[in-house]
């Protein structure tokens, strides 16, 4: 297939996944922000939201102190934030439009329909001067439904060939990045009880993390006990059953990259790197991770994941 087509499919998947993640991050932060000050611990949930979404630098350069309304606007509708939800959906659709022929009718309808709907939300937002929580909650519902629609249409209608594999690789690279980011920002509240860092550890902070990756219920099913921070780390890093865990993402990345390598009759640097990261995750234990440092572990992972993205780019997408 055309390298450009693979590139567009890869990024289409990434942008849809990113939009979904942003919606979850904001919702989780909103919940924290509604708690009485004595419950919410640090009171820096909007800074965290900016950090987790990778938008902190851009925000600081153009806006003032992070406050709910300004942060939410920056992450949802702001045209000048390249990773705002609106821009993610627009980029996703622009990528889709560039490769119309590689999309099934259902995929196109999902992404094009979302883009049309987005126009209505934008108009509503522009016509509204106050911070409207109800309108926002409709908006987040729409964003999450968009990712479900798109993802479902990919799963149900795409041929299982390289186009599908590149799309899936994009999805899981993005998802791994998102999960790792939220762990990175919140690592200090996930440390074992006796190693407090940076102030009060808080149940609500922990559950907010789980909500952001839609795993609160999953947590209970897996561990059958109340929320413990080190178990959250275990769940999001090492539990294969958890679809957003780093190891589950890499299981998929390895699988789809291998499928590409097999179909093309040769594997390369991206297959090798993916297998290395996977092996590291498969051999890791929570104890070890905490011993060597959660923060260090996550930082190294984010770098590896970025590097793999660049390798895939060089090997397949930029010919």
């Amino acid at each position: 297939m055309l390298s450009r087509t693979a590139d567009n499919l890869y990024w289409l998947a990434r942008y849809v996944e990113r939009a979904d993640f942003l919606a979850r991050i904001i919702k989780a932060a909103q919940r924290l922000a509604t708690l009485p000050a004595s419950y919410s611990g640090t009171g820096t949930e909007w800074e965290s939201a900016l950090e987790s979404s990778g938008a902190a630098q851009g925000f600081r350069a153009t806006r003032g102190t992070p406050e709910e309304a300004s942060v939410v606007d920056y992450l949802t509708f702001a045209p000048d934030n390249p990773s705002s939800i609106c821009n993610c959906i627009k980029f996703a659709r622009a990528n889709g439009r560039a490769v119309r022929t590689a999309l099934t009718a259902e995929m196109w309808e999902a992404i094009n329909g979302a883009w049309i709907e987005l126009g209505r939300f934008e108009a509503g937002n522009n016509g509204c001067s106050r911070y409207d929580r109800e309108a926002l909650s409709h908006f987040f519902e729409f964003v999450q439904k968009t990712s479900l629609d798109y993802d479902g249409s990919v799963d149900r209608t795409m041929l299982r060939n390289d186009a599908y594999w590149f799309s899936r690789v994009g999805l899981y690279i993005e998802r791994a990045d998102n999960t790792a980011r939220i762990l990175d920002v919140k690592y200090h509240v996930l440390l074992p009880q006796n190693e407090t860092v940076g102030g009060s550890l808080d149940y609500f902070q922990w559950t907010a993390i789980l909500r952001a990756v839609s795993s609160l219920t999953a947590y209970h099913w897996v561990y059958r006990e109340s929320v413990k921070p080190w178990l959250i780390a275990d769940l999001l890093i090492l539990k294969k059953e958890m679809p957003r865990s780093l190891i589950a993402c890499y299981g998929n990345i390895v699988h789809f990259l291998d499928a590409i390598g097999d179909a093309y009759g040769r594997a390369g640097a991206s297959q090798r790197q993916a297998h290395e990261v996977m092996a590291r995750l498969a051999n890791a234990t929570t104890d070890e991770i905490f011993k060597t440092g959660l923060h260090e572990f996550i930082t190294a992972f984010v770098e590896d994941n970025d590097r793999l993205g660049q390798t895939i780019n060089g090997q397949y997408l930029l010919h």
């Binding site: 055309l2 390298s3 450009r4 087509t5 490769v99 119309r100 022929t101 590149f166 997408l317 010919h319």
Partner: peptide
């Protein structure tokens, strides 16, 4: 058939190729 843009094609020794994930 593939929908290509100019940037997807290259000419080498008077033969036209498209850039694919498997090479030219």
């Amino acid at each position: 058939v593939e929908l290509v843009e100019g940037g997807d094609l290259l000419v080498d020794d008077d033969v036209v190729y498209m850039r694919t994930t498997e090479g030219a």
